[in-house]
Amino acid sequence: MDHFPGTWGRPRNDVYGAYDPSYLQSTGPKTHTTSPAVTGTSVVGVKFNGGVVLATDNLASYGSLARFTDTKRLRVFGNQAVVGFGGDVSDMQYMDRLLESMDIRENYSSHGNMLNAKNLHTYLSKVFYKRRSEFNPLWNHVLVAGFDGEGKPFLSSADLLGTTFSAPHLATGFGAHLAVPILRRLFPEEKPIEEISREDAVDALKQCLKVLFYRDARSLDKYSIAVITKDGIDLKEDEQLEGQSWAFAERIKGYGAQAV
């Protein structure tokens, strides 16, 4: 019997050598908060006539490992706002808890929860900015969708540095490279959002998710999609990408050990 619990469950020293303690940092500043662990990839969103659509896939990766394949990365706040999270999943769950408690607090007040998506975005971006200023960032890039104070469709982005911006269509992470060009082609900026139908917006996001699944190695063909209109939020969290065609893959040559 080994009487030293510190050595239990470890590879034997006489076989594998002693544990290399250099992996454990004992000096210097705390660093575990300065890199993400379990991460979600892109979030995509687009405004249409009378609302906003937001979509993510359902994957949470651990590095290159597809660790959790049913992660819900769209979070509903109140009854007219949705937040789509990219980046660290534990930080997402922390922020979700913040939003949940704020929702409960607001609902206990005499006027009920009157916070709209614009208010929520302001709040989240200030949380992000405060945490980055403390060198303890929340490692996320989020899209907030819903309505502003005047009842107009609202779509805005906030990231771990507190940077914010809004546009008729947005995407985070890989989506900024792959989905935004598709959305900009389908819905040119000079075209007013009043001319974009709900169906067109939903179809466009599905097309974006498909392209992302083809080319983003940390993505999944199971996705969530939320349509926010004045009538409420239509959230579907267990969708499957349809109409995939991998025919293009055969023509890709010249990588790795392949002999062309």
Binding site: Y16, G17, A18, Y19, D20, P21, S22, Q25, G28, T31, T33, T34, S35, R132, S133, F135, P137, L161, T163
Partner: peptide, 24 residues
């Protein structure tokens, strides 16, 4: 601090860290 005999080469560098840069 014996060196462990792994089949792959070990990085001799210190702590791996993805530094957080607070500006862009």
């Amino acid at each position: 601090r014996e060196t462990v005999g792994y089949s792959f080469s070990e990085s001799t560098a210190g702590v791996k860290q993805h530094g957080f840069y607070p500006y862009t």
